[in-house]
């Protein structure tokens, strides 16, 4: 897989085979992989009861809608590009307008992975020392992080 910035402030991802498409499709599964919804986890430090009640009633539903919309957008984009390429080599375009949706979906995936696997700061981990299943998840989150860094540098900076 090759990923490169585009002149319009987005990214172009060139998938080379079905494994690349499977890896990209994993973003959705990882984003939805934790039982407690992200919208609830983000408020775990709110302790004031009155604030908590307002937050649950007014803010959580909006957060949930926005997070779901981002994942749906990315899922649809990957599925469309995959179909167009016939599951083989082909491009996936992320336009400047889509950058935040992608960043959001990738972040949801990484946050869920962190909740499930507790890797902590990735720079202190040697993937070679991890069991194969855990290594695979760790490398996925590092891959997502690399795309996020490119999005941040390209479209959000």
């Amino acid at each position: 897989m090759k990923i490169m910035p585009t002149l319009d402030g987005g990214l172009r991802i060139d998938a080379e085979d079905k494994d690349d498409w499977r890896l990209l499709s994993g973003i959705t599964g990882d984003a939805m992989s934790h039982d407690d919804k992200l919208s609830h986890r983000l408020g775990e430090f709110i302790t004031d009861e009155a604030v908590m009640l307002d937050w649950l009633e007014y803010i959580v539903p909006e957060l949930e809608d926005a997070f779901n919309a981002a994942v749906l957008h990315v899922t649809t984009a990957i599925a469309s590009a995959r179909v167009e390429s016939g599951g083989g080599p082909g491009p996936l375009w992320i336009t400047r307008e889509e950058v935040f949706h992608w960043y959001s979906a990738l972040n949801q995936a990484r946050l869920a992975i962190e909740e499930n696997h507790k890797f902590g700061p990735g720079e202190f981990i040697d993937p070679e020392q991890l069991p194969p299943a855990r290594r695979s998840v760790f490398l996925r989150t590092q891959f997502y992080c690399a795309i996020q860094s490119m999005l941040l540098a390209q479209g959000m900076g």
Binding site: S39, T47, W55, I59, F67, Q108
Partner: peptide, 19 residues
């Protein structure tokens, strides 16, 4: 403050509000 909490959480940052 509540508005800012909503905005920060929409960007997936863990945020709280205290007196």
């Amino acid at each position: 403050a509540e508005f800012y909490v909503q905005q920060l959480q929409a960007h997936q940052l863990k945020t709280s509000l205290e007196k």
